[in-house]
């Protein structure tokens, strides 16, 4: 049950999620509830003017079908394939504002999706495993495990050869502030 979305806004966001949701034959996790929850949390954290503007933008998407798709049927009541076409129209629009608006909506809809455990697992983002592997020392001890053995070996070698790169000094080609001059 969303806390920050009106019924109308929730209906449009649900339709948006259904349309934008990344999926393909053989992979379509049930992430909709989670995505809606994330969208709800984000909307709750928006500043007051955005809390007004964002639902207005959603209404433009909902009823813009009349102008942009010559259809009297609002976005949330269109068939999925019509909605997909309509969203593509927004993404490819020559009007930057339309593109920006849909980007914002994509952000609200997709942030949750790629943070959904099943999805992270599917794309191979095994962060937990990585964290468990490397966090074996306390704060005051240098890291004991290489994040990537090949990289660690390469940089140790570079260091030995003096080819890793300058550490101290000012940005760019300059060296230290004073040493050259004093």
């Amino acid at each position: 049950m969303s806390q920050n979305l009106s019924r109308g806004t929730e209906r449009i966001i649900k339709a948006l999620i259904e349309t934008l949701k990344p999926r393909k034959p053989g992979f379509d996790p049930a992430a909709e509830e989670f995505m809606l929850q994330v969208a709800d949390d984000f909307l709750g954290a928006l500043p007051s003017h955005m809390k007004i503007l964002f639902p207005l933008g959603l209404r433009l998407l909902e009823y813009g079908t009349l102008i942009f798709a010559f259809s009297p049927i609002p976005f949330s009541r269109m068939s999925l394939s019509k909605r997909e076409q309509y969203i593509k129209g927004w993404m490819d629009s020559k009007i930057p504002l339309r593109r920006d608006l849909i980007k914002g909506m994509k952000a609200i809809a997709l942030t949750g999706y790629y943070a959904f455990p099943e999805v992270m697992n599917h794309i191979g983002y095994n962060l937990e495993e990585h964290l468990k592997r490397i966090n074996v020392v306390d704060l005051n001890t240098p890291p004991a495990v290489a994040c990537d053995a090949e990289a660690a070996k390469y940089f140790r070698e570079m260091d030995k050869l003096g080819k890793w790169g300058i550490v101290d000094g000012l940005p760019g080609k300059a060296k230290k502030y004073f040493e050259e001059r004093e």
Binding site: T19, K21, P22, I87, L110, Y113, A115
Partner: peptide
């Protein structure tokens, strides 16, 4: 990945 995905083109199947 959530943040990278936002800057990539498309949605739906193209995105995944």
């Amino acid at each position: 990945p959530s943040l990278v995905s936002l800057s990539l083109p498309g949605f739906g199947r193209q995105s995944i």
